[in-house]
Computed example of a mutant assay.
Amino acid sequence: MLPRETIATAAIPGGDTLTLVSHGRDFIVMLGRDELMGTRMQFSEEQLAALTLQELGRENPRVLIGGYGLGFTYRAALAATGEGARIIVAEIVPDILSWAEGPLAHLTGDTLEEPRGEVMICDVAALIDDANDGTCAKFDAILLDVDNGPDGIVRDGNDRLYTRTGLGKVREALRPGGMLAVWSAAPDHKFTRRLMDAGFAVEVREVRARPNNKGPRHTIWFARKG
């Protein structure tokens, strides 16, 4: 069995510590003993962007992604949109970008130089607030993958995103007909109810972690603003 090798660690503001490890040719981001994400099971993260933008049906959308991680959702969003799109990523851990430009550069390629995209070191909730107070334009789609589901597992401050009040703020930050999509490692029927109570039309899908229809089943909520 191949051993896991620690490549780097990163402190989460207001939270715990992330660890980047290698396992053969694969890379995994750990929170304690829990695997948050890895290069062997990226398909559902890519589908978070691809399915949302397909459903949205707008060629040049303005998109906010909560969490850069290993960059799979960001790169899938770039691939699914036109030259006039604007893809903004809010990443709260600065070292994540250092990993993207260092040991994970083979995944990143030149996408951090893409003129349609921007990765900002900030809390995604702050950009949602900016859209609501007019500091920045509203979004066609907001994609959240900052935790392993609708619960502030990575940092307690994320809990507010998933409350009825927080979801109401997300809804107001969207343009008419815009979509919120949330990735989760497991289903959560109470969260589905909260989305509905916040005024969204909701669809819940299960997506495999790998493109060959293998690996764990992950959950994505697609919530449209009416």
Rank of each mutant, 00 (worst) to 15 (best):
G32K: 06
T6S: 05
V29L: 07
R4C: 02
G57T: 04
T108A: 06
A181I: 06
L56C: 11
A10P: 03
D197C: 00
V154Y: 00
D133R: 01
V29S: 10
V21F: 10
M179I: 13
A10N: 08
N158L: 00
A8H: 08
F191M: 06
G177C: 01
R194W: 09
G15I: 04
V146N: 04
K169F: 09
K214H: 12
P103D: 00
A141S: 04
D156W: 13
A105E: 06
G168P: 02
L78K: 02
F200K: 09
R58L: 14
D129S: 04
I128L: 11
T165S: 14
V93L: 12
A10F: 00
H106M: 01
V154I: 05
V202K: 02
V204Y: 05
E91W: 02
P115E: 10
F200L: 04
P216E: 15
N148M: 07
A185V: 14
N212W: 15
D110H: 01
P61M: 11
T17I: 13
V119E: 07
G157L: 15
G14I: 04
F200T: 06
M37R: 03
L144Q: 00
G14M: 14
K225G: 08
Y74P: 07
D95W: 01
F200E: 01
Y74C: 00
E59W: 14
G177K: 06
R86T: 15
D140T: 02
D130S: 07
I12E: 01
L112K: 09
E91R: 01
D159W: 12
D197L: 15
A80Q: 15
L144V: 01
V29H: 06
M37E: 12
V170W: 00
F43V: 07
T9D: 03
A209E: 11
A173C: 08
G178C: 01
A105Y: 13
E91A: 04
L51D: 13
P187I: 08
H23K: 15
K169Y: 12
G82E: 09
I12Q: 06
G177L: 00
E83K: 14
A77H: 07
Q42N: 11
A90D: 08
A131N: 05
T81K: 06
K169W: 08
I121F: 11
D145R: 00
W99N: 00
P3K: 12
N148R: 11
D129G: 05
G199N: 05
G215R: 02
A80P: 06
